[in-house]
């Protein structure tokens, strides 16, 4: 850590995030990196808390399926995170309609993502913003979980958490209903929504607004009741939302769900349904998901990372 500022040469701007600009960079050995450059002095409360979180968590977590932080340096005006350079992300892959996904490919992406997430959860870290664009892809095909700007340590049961996390389409129902005591299972829900999206090639529950997200979730998965989700009616926004949403939807039977995912096997559907359980305590942990028949019994085996579909621009 604490490298000198001139060890890395910034080559070109790759993109702009919420609190930083990302550049492609090289060092003297011609290794390529992505440098996330955080402007200081722009925030009246000092260094942005997202940057603090990324610093803290990326130093702690080392895993093949989590983006690597190689170095950190600063100069007078900026704080710079030197990250692994990644060529693409799952959102681009999903949207590139020239690519054909085999079931084994989807299994490989899910497997790598859940492995990375398992490592986070095992270290008591919730990501809280999983979505296809935060699942980056390395030149060798490996998935890398990125963007820990919203991550936090798993809370004590009595601790208050903000429910305004996770990009809307991947937001778990307890968050939509304003829960302040959620757990790592919000990440499992997000992975479930991503799993569905990989199979459908389009977002599964793409709400147009926060309110619409609730309505759409209920339309797609049924209106939750005390019976299927004990405690739902005491969540902060429940009463309010239920007076606004007059139509009640039944929970779709398995046969209907399997019609939505024509190519999916029973093992895949079972895993998907469990990840999208309304009751957070019924969702699998990363471990039980990784040990589900979908991964450990059912064929085909997941595709090897280097054989996964890649966009034509992909250089390795």
């Amino acid at each position: 850590m604490a490298a000198s500022a001139n060890k890395y040469k910034l080559i070109k701007k790759l993109g702009e995030g919420t609190y930083a600009v990302v550049y492609k960079a090289t060092d003297a050995q011609n290794n390529t990196y992505a440098v996330k450059r955080i402007k200081l002095g722009e925030f009246k409360d000092g260094i942005d808390i997202s940057a603090i979180r990324e610093l803290k968590f990326l130093q702690e977590i080392r895993h093949v399926n989590v983006i690597a932080l190689y170095d950190v340096y600063s100069d007078q005006e900026t704080l710079n995170l030197v990250l692994e350079f990644l060529v693409s992300d799952l959102e681009h892959i999903i949207q590139d309609k020239s690519l054909i996904f085999q079931t084994a490919d989807i299994k490989a992406w899910m497997l790598m993502s859940l492995r990375g997430l398992h490592h986070c959860h095992r270290s008591y870290i919730m990501h809280r913003d999983l979505k296809p664009s935060n699942l980056l892809i390395a030149a060798d095909g490996n998935i890398k979980i990125a963007d820990f700007g919203l991550a936090r340590v798993a809370a004590y049961p009595q601790e208050y958490l903000t429910p305004t996390v996770v990009t809307r389409w991947y937001r778990a129902p307890e968050l939509l209903l304003g829960s302040r005591h959620y757990t790592e299972s919000v990440d499992i829900w997000a992975m479930g929504a991503i799993f569905a999206e990989l199979m459908l090639r389009t977002p599964y529950i793409p709400g147009a607004s926060d309110f619409d997200q609730v309505e759409l979730t209920f339309r797609v998965l049924g209106t939750p009741t005390e019976e299927i989700w004990p405690g739902v009616s005491s969540l902060p926004l429940y009463d309010d939302l239920m007076t606004k949403i007059t139509q009640r939807h039944p929970v779709p039977p398995p046969s209907e769900i399997s019609l939505r995912f024509m190519a999916a096997s029973t093992a895949a559907l079972n895993l998907l349904n469990s990840m999208l359980e309304y009751d957070p305590s019924k969702r699998p942990t990363t471990e039980s998901a990784l040990l589900s028949p979908y991964f450990v019994e059912e064929l085909p085996r997941p595709t090897k990372p280097q054989n996964l579909p890649k966009p034509p621009s992909f250089s390795s």
Binding site: R62, H63, V64
Partner: peptide, 8 residues
């Protein structure tokens, strides 16, 4: 060393 799952 950067490798799968080694703690900091």
């Amino acid at each position: 060393e950067y490798e799968g799952g080694s703690p900091n």
